[in-house]
Amino acid sequence: MSDQTVTRTNDEQQSNSLTDQQPTSHTVDAETDEQLVDSWTDYEFEGEAAITVEDLDVYYGDDHAIDSISMEIPEQSVTALIGPSGCGKSTYLRCLNRMNDRIDSARVDGTVEIDGENIYEGDTDLVELRKKVGMVFQSPNPFPKSIRENVSYGPRKHGDVNVGLLGKLLGGDDSEAERRLVERSLKQAALWDEVSDRLEDNALGLSGGQQQRLCIARCLAVDPDVILMDEPASALDPVATAKIEDLIEQLAEEYTVVVVTHNMQQAARISDQTAVFLTGGQLVEYDDTDKIFENPESDRVEDYVTGKFG
């Protein structure tokens, strides 16, 4: 059984569901879409690509979750991945730091190049990869430790910061370095002013929005190049969401940020370019955010971003 068979099945399902949803006007367009799928993903941009994905397929058992996606993600910008539930955008995101390795049934084909190296090649060091490509999750997940320990967790475990008795014995206590690292990370995550006087308090005592910014600070502390965010504001109230969105825009000055979001307005507000996934794990259109939201090539994408389905 070849990949193509699977693809075709998916396409059939897709056009069927589309015919169901738009019985009157869009049947012809949907067929056009299928033929032209690839031509709307060749996004031209200035500057360097931080991540280059080529022919990426992901299977969960027999389920074809990501269907032959190729895209280049420019560095120091915000790339939004949008699409309806189950379209594979989170799966795709988790391919970029190999978090899918943690799911037993997942199988990944294709290449993902970061800094010119294919991360799916045999000898990739997962520790180095994940230090370089950080991740922030849907619901805030700080450890049940103090705020300071949360931020310094990564560097400590990597041995970049030695504190405590062993640190002292093994030449040099890095308490001061740790303090500076914590302060810098929390400032970058726009949380320092709120927590600077209670760094030893448990992180679970923070509000949801603060917890999420703490998670961002924890991710920044290991000094990544790329930050992957999986619907980082979906569990937060509007005020906390606004803070996270501001933060994402600031972070893009230094880091490459890839954000999965359900919320199209959010994607329109914060991202420089947007990739639209539709059912079947296909990337349908990838372009400047303005273009996607104002004048997309694909009619299905237009329907989706104007809220006609999805």
Partner: peptide, 17 residues
């Protein structure tokens, strides 16, 4: 919660740590 394990793995920390 698995979120703790995910968070730690995403920071590049190995399983035993």
């Amino acid at each position: 919660p698995d979120e703790y394990r995910d968070a730690s793995a995403a920071l590049g920390v190995n399983q035993w740590q």
